[in-house]
Each structure stands twice: as C-alpha cells, then as structure tokens.
Design a protein around this nucleic acid. Structure first.
Length: 573
RNA sequence: GCGCCCGUAGCUCAGAUGGAUAGAGUGUCUGCCUCCGGAGCAGAAGGUCACAGGUUCAAGUCCUGUCGGGCGCACCA
C-alpha cells in the first residue's frame, strides 16, 4: 500500500517540482472517488491557478507517469484507482508470505525501548484500576516488539515509602488478629485501614510508622526489614496469578526498593550539579525556569528520608546507564502528570540531552458509577472477580451456541479475558472511564469477541476449503494476478489490509493501542459484511481461490491485530 | 485560586499528518437461517461536533476566551 503512496508522491513531485514529502496523499472518505487522492489546493498558490484546473492538467501527465493506476481529476482533487490485479498482488502477497509477522518491520532494529508499566503497590488488592496500565503497557511493548525494537518491560512495584513503615508497625501490633498467610492482601488492607483509623486518636502510631520506615531505609537487617520482605513476597505471589491470566510477562520486576542503594548517589549527583537547594528543611530542585508554573521537585524530606520522586530519579538514571534507551515510556495514570513533568524538569536542569526520550504515556482515570475507586472505603472491583465473571459469561455463551466445541474451557478463558482486555484498549487512552459491568461483559457489537468471532468464522471457511480440497494442496492459495479482477467487490478490504503496517507503526509511535483496536473493529465489520454477501466456496474454482486468498489474508491480519493487543485469536469459539 | 486534560447522535465511542456528503456500536423500530457458524447481516430513526470569537482557499481537527466535567498543586505514592 505504502508503495503506491510513494509512487504517487514521486510522480506528482516530478510533474510539479515540489518535494515528495510536501505532497499529501490521503484516502478518500467516499470509496467511489478512488483508492487514493491528492488535494490540489496547496498547488494553487505556487501555480497561481485554480485547483480544479491544476487537477485537470496534472491528471493527463500523471496518467503517463503511473503504471497500474488510473488517474481522474474530480474538482480540486486528483483521484487514483489502483488496478485490481496490482492491488491484490501488492497487498495479499506480503500478508501470505509474512503471515504472523505481517504488520511488523525491522524499523526499530538496534533501538531500545524501556516500558514501565503495571507497577502496583504491594499490600494492596489488584483492582480494575490497575488494569489500564497493565494492559496498555503490555500492548505497547508488543507493538514495539513487532517493529523490531529491543523492548524491556519493567514492573516498578511500589514497595517502598512511608506507608510501609506504617504497615510494619501495624503488623507488629495486630498481626495476630488477621490471617496473613491465608488471605494476605485482604489482611494487609485491613491492617492498613485500622492503622489510619487508630492513628487519628493515637499520635504515637504515626511516630511508630515513621520510625519503622527510618529503620527500613537505614538498611538495618532487623525485624522491620524481615516483615517488609515477607509481605513483599506475599503480594508478588498474588500479582503473579493475575499476570498469568492476562498473559503479561515482565523482563524485570523491580520494586522501588531495588533502587534504594542508588538513592544517596542520586541526591549527591543532583546536588553536585548545583541545581538543588535547601528549603524549609527539605532538599528541593526549583523548576520555574525550565517549566514555568511547575512546583519544585522534592528530593529529601526534612526528616532526612527520601520521596517517591527521589526513587524515581534514581530509577531513571539507573535505566539510562543500563539500557541507553531510545525511548523510556512510563505507562502511568494522568493523575501523575505533574510528577513526570517534575522528573523531566530535573533532567532539563541537569542539561541531560536524553530528557526528550522520556515520555509519560498517561491514561485517563477509571472510576466506579458511585465515584472514585477507593481501596480504603471498600469502593473497588477486584480484578480477579472481573476476570472470573467474564470467563463464566463466555462459558455460558459457548454452552448455548456451540455446545460441542472441543477445548471449550480454554476458549472460554480466551474469549472472557479477551473481552475485558479489548474493552480496555479500544478507547483512546487519555479518556477517563467509568467502570460498567454490562459494558465490559458485553460480547456483541464493538467488542473483542466480535473480532474473535469474525476470525473464527474465517478459520471455519478455510477448514471447509481444506476439507474439500479447494484452493490448492494444503489449502495454500496463490494470489495470482488475475485474482485481483475477481476481488473487485472486496477492494475496500484490500485497501484496509494494506494499511495495517502503517496502523501498527503509528500505534507504536503514539503509544496508542486503541488505533489497532479501532482498526481490527473496522476490518471485522468490513469482512463480516463481505462474506455474508459473497459466497467464498463456489462452483467457480478461480473465484473460490481468489476469495480464499482474501479470507486467509484477512484472518492473518485480524489475528495479528488481536495478538498485538494481548487478545487471543481462537480458531473456533 | 492556579496549572494540565476531556467535552462529537438518548447512551458508549471512531474520526493519522487541517481537505470532498461527520461514521460505528448500543438502545428504539423493521426485515434476514433451502445456502461457508445469527457472538452475525441489511434497513429506519437519531447531530447548530459544549458555546463565542479568530487563523485558513478549507476547521470536529489549529489559536484565544467562556461554560461544564476530570485530575493535580512541597515533605503520600
């Protein structure tokens, strides 16, 4: 597809003297206009002529320049129609040749992308609010993988900070009153809530919490550290179950504690650069001059302990030293925009040129119909419960629609989890979302299961073709040139299939998986509409072969798109 | 109060780099299983793209302001 765009650009450049990059080639909204179009308005100024006249004049010249395309002037537009054999060959050829790799490239070879995502806090339940970072981050990592980047996924566990001093203090006091081993997450949550309740009446508790964190940060190998270490293990075991169900893996699971040995050096480095100063007993970096209106970044509290920002800066330097990344993507909610502006502000003040490689991939906040998600108020939806319900729902639908399905349980998991994942990825990430059970558990319309279903239907057609021996040995289909003429009724799908690599590229660049989700929805819609109106396996062998080539290609692209998002593409459902 | 983000059909959302008549899903109404799987398909109805200015040959898209919503604003993470 891109090659036709490039050829049009080059030809228009030759005919007008413009640079190829300046020429805009777009897809007409109305397919009746053609496959590709060039608006001639920008040429009007240079040529001092009305756009329709320019279009009319260029159409003839371009027709001689461009093989395998027809050119027509329509008002101020030049419309290009690719010959069907050429379109089928250039689109279907690479798809059938590359298969599961189609859509990817080697554009990122030799470049490294570090992605910081999921990053839950230990001692807290994994709830639907954590879903977005996890699913977005995993998808963004896969998108970069497909483009040949070396990717490093890091789960930056929240395992350090004043709150853990409080938790340790709570365990020391009331640890015996809860079932820490049997139900660790709920027990820890109960202790945390109790701590805050009782601390309001008993100020000594707060002091005990601070003391415990000071001890933790001192590195002393005492009881405090032992308790902290144990509850970290308990939480990580819980998280592992969830990641397994979502099919998410990390290259590194590094808590904030991992960077603890680098904290002193980090503070020292920033101080040595002369950008830090004492203020109200704390050590800060002022950012007004590099980021007007941004409040200072705190490196050290007046009690001598560090903060979130200090640890994040230590992690940042460590990652740069270790990976020399081309991109470092933080998949973290939009409530932390200021935090990341501050981090980048500090890098700017230090004059580090790689500051621009650090990006906050922010996403909108999730809330519940009754308001903000609040672990402490019990206003949460646990992720495990959501996944359980989604799988149960899928199981029930399979039992109803396809009771003889082999491997039904595995498919129920793929469809149920797929529905949840797809639902979270289909919206543009900046948008806030209100959690809605009915919406997430819907399997009809613009949903993951709809795309999966389309994929399964295409697989079903291919199975029938293979069984009937149609389309060559082993079901292999040659997209021979004449086939293109037989696919006139599917030209829209061919154009769409040809756009997939560009969609993947853009989705990675913008760190926006929803672009892929929207794309597969559109493709599924087009394909569904096409195959119900055009019989694939017919008495005409040439037509059957041509259509099978399209079916096979569409199935490959739907599957590739789904897998990039982290959604399974079942052959049957 | 200040800063950042969002505001498109009843509801949930698409509308790359500004370009031809603003598209889906859902809900409502109506059709479609003699024929590759009805988690589907086809159709009807539904819009002053929050509002007001501006830039441009051209604005849902860019700029300014207003309104509405979200988030954040020094020793939490």
């Amino acid at each position: 597809m891109q090659e036709f765009v490039d050829r049009i650009r080059a030809a228009v450049a030759r005919c007008t003297g413009l640079a190829a990059e300046e020429i805009k080639v777009e897809s007409p909204r109305d397919p009746a206009h053609g496959d590709l179009a060039v608006p001639c308005f920008p040429l009007a100024r240079i040529r001092r002529e009305a756009p329709p006249r320019i279009a009319a004049a260029l159409a003839g010249e371009l027709a001689r320049e461009l093989a395998e395309m027809t050119v027509a002037a329509a008002g101020p537009y030049l419309n290009f129609t690719i010959s069907r054999p050429a379109l089928a060959r250039t689109v279907l050829g690479p798809i059938l040749a590359e298969g599961p790799r189609y859509g990817g490239s080697t554009a990122g070879a030799g470049k490294t992308v570090v992605i910081d995502y999921s990053s839950p806090n230990i001692a807290k339940p994994f709830h639907v609010g954590h879903l977005r970072s996890t699913i977005l981050g995993a998808a963004i990592e896969r998108l970069h993988d497909a483009l040949g980047y070396r990717t490093v996924g890091i789960n930056h566990i929240g395992d350090w900070g004043a709150q853990f001093g409080k938790l340790v203090a709570a365990i020391q006091r009331w640890g015996g009153t809860v079932d820490l081993e049997g139900d660790p997450i709920r027990s820890l949550l109960a202790l945390y809530v109790r701590f805050h309740e009782e601390a309001e009446r008993d100020p000594a508790l707060e002091e005990a919490g601070r003391a415990a964190f000071r001890e933790l940060e001192s590195g002393a190998e005492g009881e405090v550290r032992r308790i902290w270490s144990h509850l970290t293990d308990l939480s990580l075991a819980e998280f592992a179950r969830i990641y397994d169900r979502l099919g998410v893996t990390f290259d590194h699971v590094r808590g904030e504690a991992f960077y603890e040995p680098f904290l002193a050096a980090t503070v020292q480095r920033i101080a040595a650069a002369g950008v830090a100063e004492e203020s109200e007993g704390a050590l800060i970096v002022r950012l007004d001059e590099v980021e007007p209106g941004v409040s200072p970044c705190l490196l050290r509290k007046s009690d001598g302990t560090t903060l979130y920002a200090t640890r994040d800066l230590a992690a940042l330097f460590h990652r740069w030293d270790e990976f020399a990344f081309d991109r470092l993507l933080y998949v973290v909610g939009s409530d932390q925009r200021l935090h990341f502006r501050q981090l980048k502000g500090v890098l700017r003040r230090l004059g580090l040129p790689w500051e621009a490689r650090v990006e906050h991939v922010d996403f909108g906040m999730m809330s519940l119909p009754e308001g903000r998600i609040s672990t402490r108020k019990g206003q949460v939806v646990f992720l495990e419960e959501l996944l359980d319900r989604a799988v149960r729902e899928a199981r029930a639908i399979i039992a109803e629609k396809n009771p003889d399905l082999a491997g039904a349980e595995a498919v129920a998991r793929e469809v149920g989890i797929g529905a949840v994942v797809f639902h979270d990825l289909k919206k543009e990430r900046v948008k806030d979302v209100v959690f809605d059970w009915d919406e997430v558990l819907s399997f009809e319309g613009e949903t993951g299961p709809y795309v999966q279903y389309t994929h399964a239907r295409l697989a079903s057609i291919l199975r029938r073709a293979a069984a009937a021996g149609v389309g060559g040995a082993g079901g292999a289909v040659e997209p021979a040139a004449p086939a293109g003429e037989l696919l006139e009724d599917a030209a829209g799908i061919l154009l769409l299939l040809g756009r997939f690599p560009a969609v993947v590229r853009e989705a990675a660049r913008r760190a926006e998986p929803s672009a892929v989700a929207q794309y597969v929805l559109e493709l599924a819609r087009e394909v569904n509409s096409w195959y119900v109106h055009h019989r694939v396996l017919s008495a005409d062998p040439a037509l059957s072969a041509a259509r099978l080539g399209l079916v096979r290609s569409a199935k490959i692209v739907l599957g590739n798109g789904l897998r990039l998002l982290g959604v399974a593409a079942p052959e049957e459902m």
